[in-house]
Design a protein around this nucleic acid. Structure first.
Lengths: 335, 335
DNA sequence: TTGTAGGCGTTATCAA
DNA sequence: TTGATAACGCCTACAA
């Protein structure tokens, strides 16, 4: 615990405070406060005078003082595994969009895709007395990082830790991928997965749809990285019979798989059709453009923010599961 | 100004405060404070007793109270045009890396790539009394958003607004691109630019290197988007003589240009060599892998954070310019 | 409509 | 080594 954050930094220069504005405007601090908070109950006259001095002094109420007395910080904690991962960036965008209008700001901390980092990030965020928060893709199996007021929402975690969750129906996603590959006449199918719950769920849906069609499939496992996609695809392609359809658990890994296919001179989709997952920005940049199972990342972020705000407001908030969507592109269709 | 942020939300449940810990441990609040701040000047005995009660009550010093009296918020404001842009994600990573060890956190606000949004973001961040901040790719031509304490640093802004800056030597980047295209024997060169200072500087370097070699070049302009890259490249390719070398001001736009080349059946690099800019994650995912001028985004973010911390600490801080670097890949070399 | 006064949780100064 | 006590900047009954 004790986390001694002795910061040797000197205090930052302060602006002028409520008292100075009050003094110069010839009113009490209470009145100044009212001008900045309460719309009513202050005469147009006084308000004008106060506002005049306020702007002259460049006064703005300090959120420190305000939040101290109100017991709120107007901050939403956000813990994300890795800021540069495109999908998380989109989620962040959704969260921001919701928060923007509500006068809340984002306190960001990244967990570096690591349980310990996650805890560190949580403590960091909690120290600032955030009112609530969102944690993306948590790896923690234990209790959530919510000491006081547990207004936290999780998106796509490894374990069902928090009561309030935003999820994607991964199984349905796997199902969609299978149907698409079947639609374009593929029968020798393959799943390229990764460790973790999400991949398992995607595979379950994929397997379900195939067994319903009386088919089986082969599998290999990577780690969501491009390189692992290339390797796993290579292994898959070496075996007989050569697959004609490939479902990959992530777009980045799918990019690696495409490269392996190119190297062997296999045409996509003519020889092998490919379906990715996430529909990250890169999906439409690949060659050929990648058919992918879309995660509505922006909407999921927005939903999580909304839920957290409801929790903070003491309103009921229920977990929500989003449905994935097939985005058909060249890798399963005509070029 | 007046920004009435009347939040109708109820106060968040508070944990137990310093007083309760003090009371139960049978000491004064001052002593509890000392236990959590200065290492010395409190007997092992008392400290143990205090710590015991503190953990029992799950007490942690509120940063609200602490910062109020210290006049610091331990927050660094960060204004970024668009969180989902990969390059900015990398910069953010660099900033986080530096801040992590210094007990500072990031207050994030996005400007939506728009001057008005930038102002809004600035106000939002400033309200929380951040100690300093970093603003990425500012579009503002006027004064910086720094009312009290101007501990702000800008990265790659459109205008030289803030005194403390982190920049990339774009001109050198353009120069590098030209040399690379010349190296692989190209003579009919083309620049695919975009509006703004950065593109102009890149072009200047490009033009300089070419004129030194006694060459001229043609040009087209996009807007950094993939689609604009396709269009501009199409226009360029329709004209005679067909170019055999292409320098594109951004990787995303280069992706679009590659697509235009594919569509016309032109081979890269055999028929046309291509050099992009930024070396964003996507550069190595494209087909063929894209040679690009690397912006050391992570290092630039880290430098900006470092500078802001120095400014906050009252230390001298000087602007810094980073040198770009050529990352050679398939689009200008053997596959 | 306005002012007075108390308190939010913490740290820092000074005296013991 | 410890304890009173006075800020820090603001909000909000309550009273006028």
């Amino acid at each position: 615990m004790r986390e001694t954050t002795v910061s040797p930094l000197p205090p930052v220069a302060r602006g002028s405070g409520i008292r100075e504005v009050a003094r110069l405007a010839g009113v009490s601090t209470a009145t100044v406060s009212r001008v900045f908070n309460d719309a009513a109950s202050v005469s147009p006259d006084t308000r004008a005078r106060v506002l005049e001095w306020a702007t002259a002094l460049r006064y703005e109420p300090s959120s420190l003082g305000r939040n101290l007395v109100r017991g709120r910080s107007e901050l939403l904690g956000l813990i994300v595994p890795n800021v540069s991962f495109p999908l998380y960036g989109e989620m962040l965008g959704g969260i921001e969009a919701v928060l923007g209008g509500r006068g809340m700001s984002i306190l960001l901390a990244s967990s570096d895709d690591d349980p310990v980092g996650e805890l560190t990030a949580a403590r960091k965020v909690l120290r600032h007395a955030v009112d609530g928060g969102v944690i993306i893709n948590s790896r923690l199996s234990t209790t959530p990082p919510a000491p006081r007021g547990l207004h936290w929402v999780q998106i796509s975690a490894e374990h069902a830790g928090l009561p309030c969750r935003v999820e994607l129906d991964n199984e349905a996603g796997g199902w969609l991928a299978a149907l698409e590959l079947l639609r374009v006449g593929r029968r020798r199918l393959t799943y390229l997965g990764a460790p973790g719950r999400e991949s398992r769920e995607r595979e379950r849906g994929f397997a379900g749809a195939l067994s319903k069609a009386g088919l089986t499939y082969r599998r290999a496992e990577g780690d969501y990285s491009e390189l692992s996609g290339t390797w796993a695809a290579d292994a898959l392609l070496a075996a007989e019979p050569a697959p004609d359809g490939l479902f990959v658990a992530g777009d980045l890994m799918a990019a690696g798989a495409l490269r392996a296919l190119h190297r062997r001179g296999l045409r996509v989709p003519a020889d092998v059709a490919v379906v990715g997952f996430d529909d990250a920005v890169i999906a439409s940049l690949l060659y050929p453009r990648l058919t992918s199972i879309r995660q509505p990342a922006h909407a999921m972020g927005a939903a999580a923010a909304e839920l957290s705000l409801r929790l903070i407001a003491g309103l009921p908030a229920e977990s929500v599961t989003f449905a994935p969507e097939l985005v058909r592109r060249e890798s399963t269709g005509p070029p």
